[in-house]
Design a protein around this nucleic acid. Structure first.
Lengths: 256, 256
DNA sequence: ATTCGATTCCCAACTAGTGGAAGTCTGGCA
DNA sequence: TGCCAGACTTCCACTAGTTGGGAATCGAAT
């Protein structure tokens, strides 16, 4: 394995399930010798890609976050989309989530957290299973057809008894999502949670992702909320349609 | 320069002012030979740290964003802080911003964008000058004393005619901020913008950063808004005080 | 069609990374 | 308080991997 790959595999050792690691954890996960890991990690720390927390374990550094937020895949349309998510949030006060398509998966790129604190399946930056979430169904309905290959290839994991694990049923559900532009999923990953999603399209009608509202089952009437979600999704798509890449306003830039 | 540094310097070539770069841009910025840059960059692309946009320029990849959001410095307290920022947002409908301390500077880690769209000095992940912003003054008032070294060392850039460039005046203003726990700054970076900030403390009373409200001058009365900001800052500090690192809820985790 | 800058590919030279082993630190326990 | 085991850090001779000039190719602009 080449050095560059090694450096990257050290970063890749971190994920939402293990956000902090000891040196030997990293060595074990990457399969690198401890002394080599030590050297790599020391360099990453001195650059700011990694930091050490109060327990002296390694964590991802703010410097890497600073660079990560430059990712257009995550934030390109942020300033245009966020106001609509906020509008939906103000109207409902439940969790509002934006999920974007990223090589065959849905990634949560934006989250507003409702006061009532319904349990969320995943945090910012985490991926959602296509077959077991309402955004996932939106992806299957409106995203590229290749997404179905994932569905065909792997067994559909049952997170709860209510998770759809039958491919025919999934196809039926997705057909309905395509027809109504609304996806409703109850207890598919978290037993107590209902989520309502609708598709978002970027310029030229290209599929971008899904807006979702997440609440605790029984505390809301999904049929009442669905129109708000649908409206938000349409407003966002309309806002993205008039693309025109507004020139960024950068008052802090100095010189040159 | 060692390879690891080179890899990192390629990533470091990107910033908010230049989020997309051509190969030769990267080579020029890092000072690396073009062929070397090409190889480094190709590896970064294949791993997902970089991507190419529709113009075939290089941009930061979503994979890096995914890892970046694991940074505890940016998001450790997110789920506990965000509801209060939202509350402030709902009450005011102006931009709400959270700035965290990171080696001697303030970095914007959270932003809710108000409908009225006052001009913001910086976007997510960008740094704010200490002498020329209301969060900056909060940092100087409540953050570590070393911050003043920066102030002493460098000339205070005048972004607008209203930017404080006199160190004595700055000290006076900061003294007031320390006394009132409220920092008000008008047109210090962007002529048309007023911002109101208050300090946030994490566990053990350690300084964490600042909450701010940002609006267009003349459309709001800062004295009316200030109490809301102060209240938000106190509620957040209180919430962080009862730290206790809640065990994360991870329903998506499978196996093991 | 032509030009020129930007990108991609190649390979012999050689430097920078490697990793086993030995030494040091740390914190849990008696 | 002193001991021990596991985790971390340092060292250095060896060698695999990186290097980068140059030449070929691409492609946008004229």
């Amino acid at each position: 394995m080449a050095l560059q790959e090694r450096v990257l595999s050290v970063l890749g050792a971190f994920n939402a399930d293990r956000p902090s690691l000891s040196l030997s954890d990293i060595a074990a996960i990457t399969g690198l010798p401890v002394s080599t890991t030590h050297r790599l990690v020391a360099n990453l720390v001195s650059w700011g890609a990694l930091e050490r927390d109060e327990r002296r374990r390694y964590v991802i550094g703010l410097r890497l976050w600073e660079i990560g937020v430059l990712s257009p895949r995550a934030y390109r349309y942020r300033s245009r989309i966020l106001p609509f998510l906020e509008e939906l949030f103000v109207a409902t006060r439940e969790h509002v989530v934006l999920t974007a398509l990223h090589d065959g998966e849905g990634i949560m790129v934006e989250q507003l957290l409702g006061r009532r604190g319904a349990r969320l399946a995943a945090g910012l930056g985490e991926r959602l299973p296509l077959h077991a979430s309402s955004p996932g169904h939106v992806f299957l309905a409106f995203g590229p057809p290749e997404l179905w290959e994932v569905i065909e290839a792997e067994p559909l994991h049952a997170y709860t008894p209510r998770t759809i694990t039958d491919r025919d049923e999934l196809r039926r559900v997705v057909r309905d999502v395509r027809r109504t532009s609304i996806s409703l999923s109850e207890g598919a990953i978290v037993t107590s949670t209902v989520s309502i999603s609708a598709p978002v399209f970027a310029h030229r009608g290209e599929f971008y992702g899904a807006v979702s509202l997440v609440a605790t089952i029984g505390t809301v009437d999904p049929n009442v909320l669905a129109p708000s979600v649908l409206r938000a999704s349409r407003l966002i798509s309309a806002a993205l349609l008039t693309a025109g890449e507004e020139p960024p306003f950068r008052p802090l830039r100095r010189g040159v």
